[in-house]
């Protein structure tokens, strides 16, 4: 399956899913006018790819702000990843935020609560400019 890339706008995050490599990334702010129509296709693509391939997955989440419906969309994504991980596929989620961003750190704790098979870690944000990939992590 091909890559999925949606450039960031003021209200929607960058979506950069490199499916062939298994490296996925969400970055920026997320409070779309219509969260369902923004995240719907993203979730569909993710689920289809999870079903069709078995390469190891890494998802970088680097959101600086998100609204409640984006939070729900994230939980749906994590749930899909958890299901894949439960089936034996290696899945890592890296939650990236500033070291002193207490709210984001608490969100990370909340979001990882139900992930038993996904390897969930919290890390510093990538370069603020944002497109570089940290393959060493």
């Amino acid at each position: 399956m091909d890559a999925l890339r949606i450039d960031a706008t003021r209200r929607t995050p960058l979506v950069d899913f490199d499916f062939p490599a298994g490296v996925l990334r969400l970055a920026g702010e997320s409070y779309p006018d219509d969260s369902a129509s923004f995240f719907g296709p993203v979730l569909t693509a993710l689920r289809e790819w999870l079903a069709a391939s078995d390469v190891p997955v890494r998802l970088d989440v680097e959101l600086v702000y998100f609204n409640s419906s984006s939070a729900k969309a994230l939980m749906n994504m994590f749930q899909a990843l958890e299901t894949a991980a439960a089936g034996g596929r290696p899945v890592r989620v890296i939650w990236r935020c500033d070291e002193d961003d207490d709210a984001m750190r608490e969100f990370a704790e909340d979001f990882s609560e139900d992930l038993d098979h996904v390897e969930f870690t919290v890390a510093e944000r990538l370069d603020a400019a944002g497109s570089g990939r940290d393959d060493a992590a």
Partner: peptide
Amino acid sequence: RRSYRDQRRLVRVSDRL
């Protein structure tokens, strides 16, 4: 159970926001 935990989480998210 999952949905109940989602709900708890979402309430926390929106409280924090």
